[in-house]
Structure formats: C-alpha cells, structure tokens
Design a protein around this nucleic acid. Structure first.
Ligand SMILES: [Zn+2]
Ligand SMILES: [Zn+2]
Ligand SMILES: [Zn+2]
Ligand SMILES: [Zn+2]
Lengths: 157, 157
DNA sequence: ATGCGATTGTTATGTTGTATCATCGGGCCA
DNA sequence: TGGCCCGATGATACAACATAACAATCGCAT
C-alpha cells in the first residue's frame, strides 16, 4: 500500500509531519518557495483526511493570520497544486493533501458519502485502462480525473 | 460506436431531434413530466457538443422566457439529471446532453481543452477497471466520475 | 541606489448554486 | 360546484466558490 488508508485509525500527527517534511524537501530541491504562509495552508489542508473547502481554509488561516483574504488562500492552494502537494476534488470544490507528492500524477479518489473520508489511490491498472480508453477514442489524454463516491470500508457496516 | 463522435462534422439538428424524441419517450414511459420549460432547457443544453454553464442556459432561456431566474434553470437541470438525460461535467461546472439516456450510468468524458468539444464514451473495460479499483480498496462505489481532458482527434493537428 | 521579480496585501467583483415562501393549475373527491 | 392536494413555476434574497486589478513589500542582482 502506498499510504495509510484514510479510514484506519492512526496517529494523524505523523501524517501531517510526513507531508510537511516531504513538501519542504521537494520545494528545496526544486528551488521553489514553500513560504510560511504556504506551509501553514498545507498544514491546514492536512488537518484531516477529508477534503477541505477554500473558505474553510480561510477561516482557519485567519485565526493566526488576520490579513488573510480569499486571494491569499487561492494563491497558496494554486502553488501547492502546481507543486503536486495537494489535489482539488472537483466534485466537492475542495482540496486534499497528496499522498504521493513528488510523483507527478492526477489523483484517483474514493470519496465516502457518509463520513467524508477520502482516500487517494494509485492504481496502475486503472491508469492503464484510462489511457487505453482515451487511445481508443483517438484522444490525447493530459489530465485524468477519477472521483468515485460511495461508502468506505468503515461505513459499509 | 455508441454515438456520433463529438468532433465529427454532422447534421447536428438530427442530434437534437433524436435527443428530444428519446427524452419524450422516456419521460412518457416513466410518467414523469417533461414540461415545455424542461424540454426547452434540454434543447439549449443540446445546442452543441460542448458543456454549457447554467447561467449560459439562463441567458439563452431568458430570450423566450422572461421570468427565467437561476432556480428556474437549476430545477430543470436537476430534473434532467435525475432522469439521466444530461450529465454535469464537474471539472467545468457545466452540463452536457447524455448520449445514452435510458441506460443508467455516470458518464465518462473526453474534454478537449482546445476546442471544448466533449465526447461521452461508454467503455466497458474502463468501467470494469473502476469497479476493480474500488473493490481492491474495499470501497462500495456508487457514482463513478471520469473526466479526461486533453486534445481531441481534430485538435491534435 | 536602483531596478527587477516574486510574494503578499487590499478592495472589489464575477461566477456558481440554494433557501424560502408565494402563486398557479390540473386532478380528485365530497 | 367547490374545496383540496400536489407538482411545477415565480420571485426575492442570499450563500458558496473564485478571480481581477492594483498597491506594497522584500530579497537580490546589477
Ligand atoms: Zn492521517
Ligand atoms: Zn465512510
Ligand atoms: Zn450533434
Ligand atoms: Zn478539440
């Protein structure tokens, strides 16, 4: 498995610390600037394994950063997406920390409609099937969005 | 092939007529009401093979229906989605006529970033791969969103 | 010191989507 | 016929999501 499943109980502090350390290392290597503001936003996005809306990030950010405004947040989110550190969940208009930062990819997501927990999966067979489907239609695939909603293992009961 | 490819030239009037006829037949069979308002919205969505935003629909609708307001359009779109006559393209916040109305499914889409043409595909192998990926993660899939953006055959040059 | 580019501040606005209550109109039954 | 129900639409207001445009700041290279 590439990462802790979203639904398992775990010491989530470790998730956050790992994500932040990885982000610092990647940005350092690339010469991009993971500023304190951007790092704070990344930390907020990683507060849980549920996608978080931009305005929720804003509310949280504003607690420690009174100047925060919508553009403050969207710029940070744009940077983090460009660096591959977070993904946008299009069907929720919300953002989620990436579990495979550094390996460029568009994510594949399993979104629980009951508890909201969203697991990013990296499934090579699915990736292949997506490429093949596009190829059969003579289409040059660039960004491949997969968002599957339903019930997570924990919520199936 | 299940339908005309979005990028091929064709008599699009036939697309619209087919879609409206299918919609009337389905709603009649189900005892649901495809009112003139809803039919008009469906026709507007089908004006092209490009996804159309709700407020674009509103602008168009308002030309013949002065009372039209956002709820007017969203209610009609919600009805048409519930009947499986249109799909929402989540990554564009826009709506597209369904080419397989009557066969319940969540669509798989190829979205050209150059010309905007969006083709709905029905690819059983891809469907299988999605199911398998969810199953491997012990996830009960309900809605499966696939939106692949890139370049259509015509725009690859 | 000066200019440059990247980042952030600041104000305003654009775009997408809902909540809520009122009104209309056909079918149904007393 | 008159009253009732219910689905559809009208109408007003607002919530949620996102960007435009310009100013200020700061590190750094000339
Ligand atoms: Zn965690
Ligand atoms: Zn769940
Ligand atoms: Zn057509
Ligand atoms: Zn194209």
């Amino acid at each position: 498995m590439t990462a802790r499943a979203a639904h398992t109980s775990h010491n989530h502090r470790a998730c956050i610390d790992d994500a932040l350390a990885t982000a610092r290392a990647l940005c350092d290597e690339r010469g991009t600037q993971l500023t304190p503001l951007r790092e704070k936003v990344l930390q907020i996005v990683w507060k849980s394994h549920k996608p978080v809306g931009a305005y929720d990030v804003l509310d949280e950010l504003a607690r420690s950063h009174k100047a925060a405004r919508p553009p403050t947040v969207y710029r940070a989110l744009d940077f983090l997406m460009a660096e591959g550190l977070i993904h946008k969940i299009e069907s929720l208009n919300a953002y989620l920390g990436c579990i495979e930062a550094g390996a460029p990819h568009t994510g594949q997501f399993l979104i629980c409609r009951n508890c909201g927990a969203t697991e990013e999966i990296v499934d090579p067979k699915l990736e292949t099937a997506l490429e093949a489907a596009a190829a059969r239609a003579h289409f040059k695939a660039e960004r491949k969005i997969v968002e599957i909603s339903g019930l997570c293992a924990r919520c199936i009961v």
